[in-house]
Amino acid sequence: MEKPVILLVKEIYYPILTAVGLPANLMTIAILSRGNCGLSKCISVYMLAMATADLLVIFINVMLYYIFSYHFPLSFLSQTSVCKTILYMTVVNLDCSVWFTVSFTFDRFVAICCQKFKFKFCTKKASTAVVTTISALVLLKNIPAFFAYEHQHLINNMQWGCRASLAFFSSTPGRAYIWFHGAWVLWLPFSHIVLFNSLTVRCILVANRARTRLRGDRSKDHSDSETENRRKSIIMLFTVSVTFILLWLTYAVSLVTTKLSNTIYYLGDRTNPAYIATETGAFLKLLSCFQNPCIYTVTQSKFRKELKNAAKYPWRLIPRLVGNN
């Protein structure tokens, strides 16, 4: 019996995403940690947090859950305790990735539009506190995920596998958690990103008009360093935000149409349109964890320079090793 096309796509797509996503995010973390990209310390904290969350998504959500657990169903990863921990971490990782993106958007809004507040908020200490608080809240918020699954088999008094707990998802707390999770990971982030970006654009347009009038010569505006810095900042901000929304949009729509529970209970054939839509949404939302390294490479010249230096380093090291021998 032939495998459904969607399963074949998953078997090809997830290994490729892992192969490119892991080294890309590792390289991003290494480059940002060096602090040579000309970024402020608070921006670096948020970008490092996003890269770390994306790395964990690729490693745990994609590699451990979608690849190893799928291809090696009898490994220790399939023990119920391990399986439930992996499922819990898949939710935590995605939540952190989403809300670090929101916090980065809010930080840029404050830096550009709230001149008095930015000196208190846009600091390394404040950004570290924000990232730590978000991580703690996400860990606490997803504790119900441990109770959302139960063992699938009992072999030699050992629990194996994970399946959705019908008792949990049919209960009032279970349904409330589902809808709260949907709002937390989709609608609240979407609305906040759109709101902050809209206010940021308005503030930049007003500031640029005022600056142009003060300078009195529009032709010189192109050489204005402050305007150029704002332009670069807003390009990166919008690219990160818009790409995030587009890649998560399919998942958001499928989540609403299937009300999530249909996907959790789903045990039918893999040609069902609802299942295909849900899996396609998963493809795209996980692809968002590879987007930021690409965006930094395209929009940040100093990041590209550091990336080129990193790529050249092994070739520079070879002559030294050969010379020492």
Rank of each mutant, 00 (worst) to 15 (best):
I6V: 08
V9Y: 03
V9L: 15
E11K: 14
Y13D: 04
T18S: 14
T18D: 05
V20D: 09
V20K: 04
G21P: 03
G21T: 08
A24Q: 04
N25P: 10
L32P: 00
R34G: 06
G35V: 05
C37Q: 06
G38H: 02
S40P: 02
I43W: 15
M47N: 03
A51R: 00
T52E: 00
V62G: 00
V62T: 08
I67N: 08
I67L: 09
Y70I: 02
L77Y: 12
Q79H: 10
Q79S: 09
Q79D: 06
S81I: 11
S81W: 12
C83S: 09
K84N: 12
T85R: 01
C96H: 00
C96Q: 05
T105V: 09
T105Y: 00
I112A: 10
I112T: 07
C114N: 13
Q115K: 15
K116L: 06
F117V: 10
F119D: 11
C122D: 10
T123I: 02
K124H: 07
K125V: 13
S127F: 00
V131C: 08
L139S: 03
K141R: 15
A145H: 04
F147V: 01
F147S: 07
F147G: 02
A148P: 00
Y149M: 11
H151M: 15
N157R: 08
N157F: 04
Q159C: 14
G161W: 02
R163M: 13
R163C: 11
S165M: 03
S165I: 05
H181I: 02
W184F: 14
V185T: 07
P189M: 05
F190I: 15
F190T: 12
H192K: 09
F196N: 03
T200R: 01
T200Y: 04
V206T: 11
R213M: 11
G216Q: 04
D221A: 12
T227P: 01
R230Y: 07
M236D: 04
S241H: 03
L246T: 15
L247T: 03
W248K: 10
S254R: 02
S261W: 02
N262R: 12
I264K: 03
Y266E: 01
G268W: 14
R270M: 09
T271F: 07
A274I: 07
A274F: 15
A277S: 13
G281R: 00
L284D: 02
K285G: 02
K285S: 06
L287E: 06
C289V: 05
P293T: 08
C294Y: 08
I295V: 13
A310Y: 08
A311R: 09
K312I: 09
I318V: 08
N324P: 01
